[in-house]
Nucleic acid binder design. Structure first.
Lengths: 333, 333
DNA sequence: GCGCGACATCGGCAATCGTCGTCATAGGCT
DNA sequence: AGCCTATGACGACGATTGCCGATGTCGCGC
């Protein structure tokens, strides 16, 4: 390891001068500066960020804590965040909590110990506890959650509106008996999507019978299972709203194995617009979350807070949009 | 920020004692230790990892540099690596290079400056340069690449064998005219897969006509396009080998839009076994890469090297396996 | 034209960030 | 006296930065 002292010696100046040359933090005689730069190049010196962080009190690192980076939705968000962060000179530490509160807490402790400059947190279920203890001590941006606290901003998606769009679309096509596959009850998103969906039905004078809704887990296999149960409970439905695309895809598979065709026998709409929604047959009509925006806005909010720690906390609400593909049609019966 | 000195003061001992209590690095009178622990708890003290890293010369951090974490294959690998690393007390810095050599180099510099303890690198194309300059200075594990160098291990998948399995499977079903959609020529994997595939054909006395192979880019849209071109160039093929699942899925979509049915009119086999391969209709027969193994083995190799820096470098070859689903059948004509 | 003080320019010393490990020391025991 | 045992003091680790000192430049008054 070559250090700044080696460079200083090699260039015949003090370490202070080397530091000032690197950081352009005060004027240095051009000739001297050149000598320093030559020494840096000759020794292939690269400053030790750990030492720098200790001294400066900032690590140029942000923590990204989410349930599962292999879920395509989070994968995209993570990608956006990593990109946006890197452009601004920040590096991202990736953490997968599986939505497990205990894991979240462990990760948070590690991240705090590592002195991250900021945190982007996609919590899953109930973690008010975690928040209360740890969050306010580091600038943070919450995804799809909010708490009232200094230092914590939120990027939210208007799930209620998304659900409403989904309902409106199906109702508009003429469907009257509609089934639903819900996500986890303790997620922030699924209940909201449902709420909006129900409102759309009500506006059309329809109601959602308890028998035509089955809760599941946001996964492919779960969607398949839920669809099976739904067929048994509510065989007369002509359309389906799945609270995310993965479950919609699972449901699609089940329908096909039963010889039912989409959209002829059953219309189907999902939520998220993951990249694989175009991959099914028929391509899935869905409510798109603005993934790129979520990531880039989260980073922006975080960076702005870093530069202005005392600003009032902000919540940014992004609008989902309906993406019509080919899995919805008017009912035949 | 509370520091070890605050704890020492609060407990009425020296900082050395506090440190030794935390790290169990020398005997401390139980009573004193208890007092120290109480102080730690009372002050909610957590040691500053940055200072610790500077002092100890290790950061408990590994860098993960890959083309794109939103590609489902890499997403899964990243997940495995993050999990395995965390269990052993390591934290992961995520970097996306897009396979761009310049970006790779920039990321590597940053990672080195941050004093990562080790690197897991899924390089994409030509980066001998990058390697030569930077790699040997940090313990590293290469995914799907190898270079001869101390300090660098490799986890490889036997792509040749995978391609061979694919070819064998199609030939075994009776196909004689087979099309291929290739990946990027400069990737490490695609040419190898092709090589194995061709060997399987040759063993059956078949040859791969140049007109029945189209190169693409490993993406969904690329696969769709390639399939279109292939239909024009080689309309008589009865089966297709796509060098990855995403392209297979694209091809599938195109076939469907042309009114062709899989596997009745065209058999199709992919490569990777991404989670969405079960999601298509029909579910995709494919050559599975052992994703979990890739991640966990990479971490193991890295940790072993960290504990034994001078050990001879190792290459670990993992075997892909055929996963039969429903996209292949004997030819009808 | 000369002498002197004010001021700008440039570089080095040393303190500092928080932790850990080595060496030193005080006390109690045999 | 000699030897443990338990703990404390202190100097790295590598970089940044406030402060001071040395040198050079300039202007002014006589």
């Amino acid at each position: 390891m070559t250090t700044i002292a080696d460079v200083a010696r090699h260039a015949g100046v003090s370490v202070a001068t080397v530091s000032h040359v690197m950081n352009r933090t005060r004027h240095v005689e051009p000739e001297t500066a050149e000598r320093v730069r030559a020494a840096i190049a000759a020794l292939r010196y690269s400053p030790n960020s750990v030492a720098r962080s200790l001294r400066r009190g900032e690590t140029k690192t942000i923590g990204l804590l989410l349930p599962d980076n292999s879920n395509p939705f989070f994968a995209s968000v993570a990608r956006q965040i990593e990109d946006a962060g890197f452009i601004s000179g920040y590096t991202v530490i990736l953490c997968n909590s599986d939505g497990n509160a205990e894991k979240e807490e462990r990760y948070l402790s590690v991240l705090m110990a590592k002195q991250i400059d900021g945190l982007i947190f996609a919590g899953s279920s109930d973690h008010a506890r975690v928040f209360a203890r740890l969050l306010p001590s580091v600038p943070a941006v919450l995804l799809d959650r909010e708490i009232q606290s200094v230092n914590v901003d939120s990027v939210l998606v208007d799930h209620v509106h998304g659900g409403y769009l989904a309902g409106k679309h199906l109702v508009g096509l003429g469907h009257r008996k509609i089934g639903v596959i819900g996500g986890p009850r303790d997620s922030s998103s699924s209940p909201a999507r449902l709420r909006g969906f129900v409102r759309a039905l009500e506006e059309a004078g329809l109601e959602l019978r308890p028998s035509s809704i089955v809760d599941s887990d946001y996964h492919f296999a779960g969607g398949r299972l839920a669809m099976e149960q739904l067929m048994a409970q509510a065989p007369d439905i002509t359309a389906l709203f799945a609270c995310n695309d993965l479950m919609a895809m699972g449901a699609l598979t089940l329908l096909r194995s039963r010889g039912l065709r989409v959209p002829d026998d059953m219309s189907m709409i999902g939520f998220d617009d993951i990249p694989y929604a175009v991959t099914t047959w028929p391509p899935l009509t869905t409510i798109a979350q603005p993934v790129e925006k979520i990531g880039t806005r989260a980073v922006s909010l975080l960076l702005e807070r870093l530069s202005e720690p005392e600003a009032p906390s902000r919540r940014e609400v992004l609008a989902p949009v309906l993406v019509e593909r080919e899995s919805c049609a008017p009912p035949r019966r």
